[in-house]
Design a protein around this nucleic acid. Structure first.
Length: 259
DNA sequence: GTCATGACGCAGA
DNA sequence: ATCTGCGCCATGA
């Protein structure tokens, strides 16, 4: 007869299964489910550490096998269906961000994590340039590389990369096409027409002469500036030269001193 | 290690 | 207004 401890394989399996809440299956498989979102139905993969991967069903022809394959290409694990959604996922996908939502950023480089984390801090209804994301990620000159990270954002919508736009006021590209980017931003009430109108006049920042603060045009502080006290600037440097200081909320770059 | 590749930004034409 | 060219820098082949 087999005495306890006489079978190393059984013992090892027992040790693996030890932590009750996350069973062996959760150590091997990643859970997935389908959910409605602002981009239509999306497939979502998540582990015990949080959401890891999101893709619109439409871009995969509604094929869950294609989702599983692209997930496995990237994270090297198989998928299994989930019973229920992680906390905060469903409201966030619908555009109502939940603080309880956790993201699983393991398996990403430090730079990728920093870029995604910075992007996550952009409030709904506002935009920031790629250069802002690079600076917030701690690599002010890695602007292009930051764009490359967002081009393969594992969690669109949850990491709102659609809010990252070009410094000249144009939208820039989007992983599912810039038309979707524009739709998402307009749904969030970003006044793109205003941004374009300002950019046409070379204005990329707005300041208030009552507060002496200069902001990105979509910053909620900028939108409250009384038109009579509103001044446009081509650069933060120009605003600083005029006696303004960068907004502490939207943090426009305080670098160049050009006029 | 080298090299090509990009959801960028800016200056100059 | 557009369209270059060039610098930038993290990745993956």
């Amino acid at each position: 007869m087999m005495l306890n401890g006489a079978d190393p394989i059984a013992d090892a399996l027992g040790a693996l299964a030890a932590p009750p809440p996350t069973g062996l299956a959760d150590k091997v498989f990643t859970a997935w489910l389908a959910a409605p979102s602002r981009l239509g139905e999306v497939f979502v993969a998540f582990t015990g550490h949080g959401v890891q991967f999101v893709r619109p069903a439409e871009t995969l022809h509604g094929d869950i096998d294609a989702f599983a394959e692209s997930y496995r290409d990237r994270f090297g694990r198989p998928l299994r269906p989930a019973a229920r959604a992680p906390s905060g996922l469903l409201p966030t996908l619908r555009g109502r961000p939940a603080t309880s939502l956790r993201l699983d950023l393991r398996g990403l480089s430090e730079f990728e994590r920093d870029v995604l984390t910075a992007t996550r801090r952009i409030p709904a209804g506002e935009t920031r340039p790629y250069g802002w994301v690079a600076r917030e990620a701690g690599r002010p000159r890695a602007v292009r590389a930051a764009g490359s990270v967002l081009a393969r954002n594992p969690m669109p919508l949850l990491v709102p990369c659609h809010r990252v736009v070009r410094a000249d006021g144009r939208l820039g590209d989007y992983m599912f096409g810039s038309a979707h980017k524009e739709k998402l931003l307009r749904d969030e009430r970003v006044d793109l027409d205003e941004v374009v109108a300002l950019a046409r006049q070379g204005v990329h920042y707005l300041g208030s002469d009552t507060t002496g603060v200069v902001c990105f045009p979509t910053c909620h502080n900028a939108r409250r500036i009384d038109p009579a006290h509103r001044h446009g600037f081509r650069s933060v440097g120009a605003a600083v030269a005029a006696g303004y200081r960068p907004c502490r909320t939207c943090r426009p770059a305080a670098d160049a001193t050009s006029a």
